[in-house]
Design a protein around this nucleic acid. Structure first.
Length: 427
DNA sequence: ACGTGAAGGACCC
DNA sequence: AACCAGGGTCCTTCATGT
């Protein structure tokens, strides 16, 4: 199953020869430390699946019936919270970084483009020409080059992206200044009040936003999804990508029909691993998820069950995160990390860690934030990650305190495992 | 039984 | 020949103390 990250459907990749992509990825990576590490993680997942299956098989018929009744009860309880009253739009820019680069150099439009820091680092974005070859975001440059030898690499230039992002945000603010910026290229906008006040619809606003964003950015396109919750709007934003929109109805019937055949992998929060686990229990779509709710309740943790049931029913995330206790806090952390040619040189690693920890402290000062905990992240040449953390006496953003804590945490590890060869450090 | 800190991971863009 | 980011959030598990 290795490589499934790069073969699952993504906008603009419908006609890609997935077999070929899988083969090229495999041939290019088999035997590398990264591949070994992926295999290790897959084995851990296999073990987890085996434990879940054993637990399921060990349960009696009576126990299963109890889980069935309780799962039904949870579903009924969740149903009671269903409300189609809110109207959410999600705007997602199409191939954002690549599209920004094309704006400055239109010649790029007709050639395959990958935006990456270097030809061997991972792509942050691929334009739609490149996607035809199976090239996509998160793919290492050297594999992308194998799939598409003519691929043109462009280094990311965040000034361009911030500018375009601000231009698009000016449009979002017209509909709700309290929009949620998911990232530079994505926003959640609640338009319930706007629709009410201006007697309009999500469809009409989505059209407006798409044309205004194109205007404001000088030609960038975006896709818009709409629905009665952030979750549903988000999944809809991908439905007619690129340069399209899809507004889902807000009745229970509309939602369940939509979800019935929707692959679970499309939902925010379900990635490669969870997809694999669910597949093992014959769950491919959100409809399957609903049907197998008793299994979910029996085998997943309570939080995970609630999350999955919410997906299956299309309930949850109707409100702004600030309306919930958990979401009301601000920034949780500040970090800096860097990958380099793997080395065991202690002087080099110390210098790197000092540099990064200093940047973190300065960034905290700039943001007027203080931290109660310092953590370091070390990635070995074998790609396994070591994290070490320490709680401070009190909140601080003092450079010396943060640098010394980070160095102490790293040196501690270095003295235990002789010859630790690292390819990344971070604080 | 429960809160808390630490470590590891999954996931998102 | 070798080459797989960097910024985040959240959850789970385990050890530990009360």
């Amino acid at each position: 199953s290795y490589g499934s990250v790069f073969t699952h459907a993504k906008a603009g990749m419908e006609n890609v020869d997935r077999e070929r992509v899988a083969r090229v990825v495999y041939d290019a990576t088999v035997g590398t430390p990264h591949h070994e590490n992926e295999t290790r993680k897959e084995r851990a997942t296999s073990k987890r699946i085996a434990a879940m299956k054993a637990k399921g098989q060990g349960m009696t018929k009576t126990e299963w019936e109890t889980f069935g009744r309780r799962a039904d009860e949870r579903a009924r309880a969740m149903e009671r919270t269903r409300s189609g009253a809110r109207k959410w739009l999600v705007v997602d820019m199409d191939g954002f970084y690549a599209a920004c680069e094309e704006l400055y150099d239109p010649a790029l439009k007709s050639v395959p483009v990958g935006v990456a820091a270097g030809p061997s680092s991972v792509l942050t974005t691929a334009n739609y020409v490149a996607r035809k070859y199976g090239v996509r975001a998160a793919m290492p440059g050297f594999i992308a080059k194998k799939l598409c030898p003519d691929l043109v690499f462009v280094k990311p230039d965040f000034k361009k992206y911030v500018k375009a992002s601000n231009e698009s945000r000016g449009v979002f603010a017209q509909y709700n200044p309290d929009y949620i910026a998911g990232s530079l290229d994505e926003a959640y906008i609640e338009v319930t009040e706007y629709c009410e006040k201006h007697d309009t619809t999500m469809e009409a606003i989505a059209e407006e936003i798409r044309s205004k964003v194109k205007e404001a950015t000088g030609g960038l396109t975006c896709s818009v999804g709409g629905g009665c919750s952030r979750r549903l709007a988000k999944v809809c934003s991908d439905f007619n990508k690129p340069n399209g929109q899809y507004i889902l109805g807000t009745t229970r019937d509309d939602i369940l029909k939509f979800l019935r055949d929707l692959p679970v992998r499309k939902m925010y929060g379900i990635g490669k691993t969870l997809e694999r686990i669910l597949n093992e229990f014959d769950i491919k779509t959100c409809g399957d998820l609903l049907a197998k709710r008793a299994t979910m309740l029996a085998l997943f943790t309570p939080k995970a069950f609630d999350f999955l049931l919410g997906i299956a029913l299309g309930i949850g995330t109707e409100c702004h995160p600030r309306e919930t206790p958990e979401g009301s806090g601000g920034r949780k952390g500040v970090s800096k990390s860097e990958t380099f040619k793997a080395t065991a040189d202690k002087a080099y690693l110390d210098a790197k860690m000092t540099e990064l920890a200093t940047e973190v402290a300065l960034e905290c000062q700039r943001l007027n934030l203080k931290g109660r905990m310092v953590a370091v992240k070390l990635k070995r040449s074998t790609f396994d990650v070591i994290q070490r953390q320490t709680t401070l006496a009190g909140p601080t953003n003092d450079v010396k305190t943060i640098v010394n804590s980070a160095l102490r945490l790293m040196r501690n590890e270095n003295s235990i495992g002789a010859n630790m060869t690292l390819r990344l450090v971070g604080a």
